[in-house]
Computed example of a mutant assay.
Amino acid sequence: MFKQFRLDVRLLKEIDKTLLISMILLILYGTFNIYLCTKGQYGMTFVKQQIFWLVASLIALYFFITIDYTIIFNYVPILYWGTVVLLILTMIPGIGIVVNGARGWINLGICKLQPSEFAKLVIILMLARKLDEMDGRINDMKNFFILAFYCIVPVIFILKQPDMGMSMVCFFIVLGIFYTMGFDTRIIAGGLASLVLAIIIVWNSGLIEPYQKMRFTAFLNPEVNDASTYHLNQSLIAIGSGGIVGSSPSLTENGSSTYAAQNVPEIHTDFIFAAIADQWGFIGAILLLVLYGLLLYKIISIARTSKDIFGSVICIGIVSYFLFAILQNIGMTIGLVPITGIALPLVSYGGSSLLTTVISLGITINVGMRRKKIHF
């Protein structure tokens, strides 16, 4: 029964090794920095949990590399509606739990699962499947409404949690796919206007707590020294203290923690970039961006050479996710964009985020492996 999960050695040479190595280095870099910035207060707690999810992610990676990605095509509806059910379950007291003001997690006992992380992947898969069935005819009005339906359903439940950050991620994934597939730019402009309107409505609906609003608008007035700007100001100080080569890496067991580790809230999740810049300085930050650059370049290359629309759209969606998440996460730590709870892909602490991101890259590698016919 496990024969279908054996990877033929003749396919191994088709694996994009640069993409695979870049992904692994980013995960290791992130895990190491999670340890460095939390060991002073939490010891090995967070790094052990991250390693648990890393092992689970590598198992999933192997699974999604070995099976032909065209087989996934047939199971996309099951994955999509299964994720929608999980999103609904988060709203049921006793099943869904509240973390940082959002009821977006399911308690599994040994760990917590965040279904919205899976939502971004299944949206990509569903759009890829539908566009393949439509032969890429995205400007057909009937096709547009079908695609819009599958985008809106999970986002409604994500907004209900409320999780504005993940809603933005989903929106920009869809935007990237629609734009790349040649969607009418006038309608895209209308979609952006609709996003602004939706934000205004949600902003004034009472779903967003006052402290969440304060964090979101803090970047507009960083000079104000109060609770609303505390995260940002501490992050800026930490990044500045890193200099060129880093402040004082706490590489020994009893080594002193950096400024970021001691003063920046949520340092191992939302503000992991501040920890890296403080620990390793400008050089460490550039290394991170170089690895991301290599990763994105290889995904784009695979998208261009995919043998079908399904594979191309998957890669486009994943590139859109990475671009937005990287720019948003790093941008918020340096005060260029509002502060949202968007993780730095592969680097921030978070099991659901790591698992879904590795799975998405596994499917991307799969598309690249099978872009040309292999003669057995």
Rank of each mutant, 00 (worst) to 15 (best):
G242Q: 06
I67P: 00
I365T: 08
F273R: 08
I173Q: 06
G350Y: 00
S228V: 06
I267K: 14
Y230K: 15
Y62W: 06
V155R: 10
I24S: 15
L195H: 00
L232N: 09
Y62S: 03
K130G: 07
G331S: 09
S235I: 04
V290N: 03
W81F: 15
R6T: 05
L11H: 08
A60N: 01
V196S: 11
L127A: 14
L287S: 13
I334H: 06
A119C: 12
I71L: 10
I363R: 07
I51W: 02
S250L: 02
F178M: 15
S320R: 05
L87A: 14
L131E: 00
A227Q: 10
V202M: 13
D278C: 14
L147H: 02
F5N: 06
L113W: 02
G351L: 07
V98P: 02
I72W: 05
D163G: 14
Q212R: 15
Y179S: 14
Y292H: 09
M168K: 06
D8Q: 13
I239R: 08
I59Q: 06
S228H: 05
V264I: 07
G82T: 04
G101N: 04
F216Y: 09
K142R: 10
T90Y: 02
V358G: 10
L294Y: 06
Y80G: 15
L344N: 03
L127W: 03
I199P: 00
F73I: 04
P249F: 05
K213I: 07
K372P: 00
T70E: 12
I21H: 06
I316T: 14
I106A: 11
I237V: 13
A277I: 00
P154K: 14
Q262Y: 00
K39Y: 03
N329Y: 04
L87K: 08
F64A: 12
L289F: 01
D140T: 07
F178D: 05
K142P: 01
